[in-house]
Amino acid sequence: MTDVNTVAAPASGGLKKKLNREQKKLVWSVFWRTMWLMFCTSYTKQQGITFSWVLIPYLEKIYGKETDEFYNAMARHQGFFNTTPGVSPFIFSLVVAMEEERKACLDAGKPFDDETIESIKVALMGPFAGIGDSVYSGVLRIVATGVALGFSQAGSWLGPILFAVVYNVPNVLIRYFCATYGLKLGSTYIAKMLESGTIKAFTKGFSVLGLTMIGAMTAQYVSFKTTLVADLGGTTFNLQSVLDQILPGLLPLALTLGAFAYLRKKNRPMRVLVFMFVISVVLTVLGICG
């Protein structure tokens, strides 16, 4: 275990730090193993059990195979854990680095508070899930769907392929860079970033892009149209063209905002779903839509 000291450098660090060969290998290993994070998610611990599963080879390397220290470390890493899987490599890299530091401290006869590792995990999983979910579900998925939908609706193969590529190229890059920067930056730097609000600034930017896209998709993919045409004493009355003159896309916008207003007050999406089925039946039977 002579290489422990060369790999560990969690407390200090920065963006410009270069990784050595051993660390680069670790980055790729974390990259691949964290792909499995979602397997075995339970109600009580979410990703907790798999968190320890991911760490098995690293803990074996640090503390030695089948040692008491190894099993203690495994037990320490089975607490509740839940974050966006895509950004989790960052936390794993950081935890591996901190475990190495812990080992180095204990070898040198210095005390090490095990709580620091656990508290970093707990402190990071919330903000990382916040930014991760808004990037992955709010931006990447929406942009990928938006790019692909037009092609798919026309029946072109480009649709599903573009969806897979536009979503997954950033997904893979984020995972790789998270694993790298977890090692590079170290715990101190992250604490500073959380404190200063840099992460919040990025989350806000991603919300802006996400909301813009949702607005655009409301306009282009909620196609709630009326087909009512009445003959009123010689002049034809076309309900849809009147609505279009007031504001193009008025009905889809009203429907979406109505659903949103209800969901904000009462979180019951199933009710909205049933309600939509009911009004679509009513409007079709009355001859207003369909």
Binding site: D133, S134, S137, G138, I142, K204, S207, V208, G210, L211, T212, M213, I214, G215, A216, M217, T218, A219, Q220, V222, F224, L247, P248, G249, P252, L253, L255, T256, L257, A259, F260, Y262, L263, R264, P269, V272, L273, M276
Partner: peptide, 28 residues
């Protein structure tokens, strides 16, 4: 529309809500 509403719930805040309408305008 329900899908959009569910998505908006996770991103909506007073500060950024005008951007939803900007996107709608650009699209519609």
């Amino acid at each position: 529309a329900l899908g959009m509403a569910l998505l908006m719930k996770s991103l909506w805040s007073k500060e950024v809500c005008p951007y939803y309408f900007l996107g709608f305008g650009l699209g519609a």
